[in-house]
């Protein structure tokens, strides 16, 4: 088969490019994408299942900060996103739906402490305290 080059070039000159110019526009992310975790401490029952099923041991059960000890006396999951493989097993096993994976994939950072997600975020602690 001979490749008809000239008509193809002309067609490609007028047609839209196949790529998207990423920071300015982005392909839609489908529902069910496995991205950053969202965690609701009020739904959590501290059953420890997510920490047990996590293949990479990215989830560690920690106590709440001093100010919140009264309201949240048990241990809650702290997610280390640097270790996470985004398998969503924690979401599947969670009996109350407290931990969920969101569509957010903008996770790169220059600060290594940013990858650790505390059950009650440090920022929130500062704001309220």
């Amino acid at each position: 088969m001979k490749m008809k080059v000239v008509p193809k070039i002309l067609k490609n000159m007028v047609s839209k490019p196949i790529t998207t110019r990423f920071p300015h526009e982005s392909n839609p992310i489908p529902d069910g994408y496995r991205g950053e975790h969202s965690y609701d401490v009020d739904k959590c029952i501290s059953c420890n299942l997510c920490a047990k099923i996590c293949p990479n041991k990215a989830i560690d059960m920690v106590e709440a900060p001093e100010k919140y000890k009264e309201k949240y006396p048990k241990k809650y999951p702290r997610v280390d996103i640097g270790k996470c493989c985004f398998c969503a097993l924690c979401e599947d096993i969670c009996p109350t739906g407290a931990i969920k994976l969101t569509k957010n994939f903008f996770l790169s950072t220059f600060n290594s402490s940013d990858v650790i997600k505390d059950p009650i975020p440090a920022k929130e602690v500062e704001d309220r305290g």
């Binding site: 069910g32 994408y33 496995r34 398998c87 097993l89």
Partner: peptide
């Protein structure tokens, strides 16, 4: 890969989409 993203939730790593007993999610 776009299809994989839609069905399994990840482009390259399906995270055990085909798991013991069946598949982890239904086709959308």
């Amino acid at each position: 890969l776009d299809l994989f993203e839609l069905i399994t939730g990840g482009r390259v790593y399906p995270a055990g989409y085909i798991c013991p007993g069946g598949v982890r999610r239904d086709l959308p």
